[in-house]
Amino acid sequence: MLVSTSCERDSVIDVEQGVVTPVMTAYFYEDSSVVVNAYSSVSFYSSTNYQALTNAIVTIDKNNKFTQMVAADSGAIRMTFNGLRINTGDTITVNVSCDEGNLSATTVMLPAVDFTVTNTLNDSVVDCVVRIMDSNIATDYFQLKLFADDELVDCYYYDDIFESVFATSEQLLGLFTDNDFNSRVRYVRFAFNLKDALRADGTNATLRLRLYHHTYDYYQYLLSIQGAFASTVLPVLGQTNCYTNVTGGYGIVSGLSFSEKILEIEN
C-alpha cells in the first residue's frame, strides 16, 4: 500500500558544484607492469565520469627508494610504468601531485598462499574442498574465485566462513578471513554447476581456481562496495562511503597476489 501511494519528483534544490577532489587507483601484480589511474571527481551534472588532473606528476617508490616518475600528459588518466616489476614483499608508495592536490598511498605485495583442492562430481554439481594452511597469527584476507576460460563462474559459497553468501555485489562473493583458523588448516567448501564448466560447444573449459591473498585495504574496499550497491537499490539507506587508503583524496591502491590451480573435474 505504501509503495502504491509513494511517488518521486525532481527536486528544485540547486546543488552547487563541489570541491574537485583527486582520485587514484592502482593495482600491483607480481612480475607485471604497473598501471596507475589518476583523475578527479566530477559534478553530478557532468557528462563524463573521469576528469583529468591538471599538471599531474605520478611517482612510485619501491621499498622507500625512488623508482619512477611519470608526468601525465594533458588529458591522460591512465599511466603505465614500464620496466617496473613488483616482487613479493615489496612496499610500494604511489604519490600524485597536481593542481587539485596531492595524493599518497602505500601498499605491500603480499605472498601468495598455497592451497590444494579436491572435487567430487555429484550428478550435475561439482563440490569442491579447498585445503588452506595458514602460516601466521596475523589476520589474512582471502577470496576464492573460479574462472572458466577467463570468465568468472557463478559458485555457491555455502561454507559459513564466507563473508556474505547473500551479497548483491559479485565482488563480495568468495571473501573470507582466517579469523577462525589462524596458524591452522582449514577446509573451505563451495560448489558450482557442471554446466558452467562447459563451453557452448560442449567441450570442457579450462577451470582455474584462484585463491587471492588480499591486503586489508582492498578487503575493506570490497566490503564498502556492498554498501554502495545497497543504496542504489534502496536510496533511503543513504550513501555509504567507499573505503580508501589514499590520503589527500579517494581511491584504492593495493597489491593483488594470488595462487592458482587448474581444476580437473573427476570423471
Binding site: I13, Q17, G18, T21, Y27, Y39, S41, V42, S43, F44
Partner: peptide, 13 residues
C-alpha cells in the same frame, strides 16, 4: 546533506 560531486572507481576486474 546532498552529495555535490561523484567519482568512479574501476577495480581490478
Amino acid at each position: 546533506t546532498i552529495p555535490d560531486s561523484r567519482y568512479t572507481i574501476k577495480d581490478a576486474d
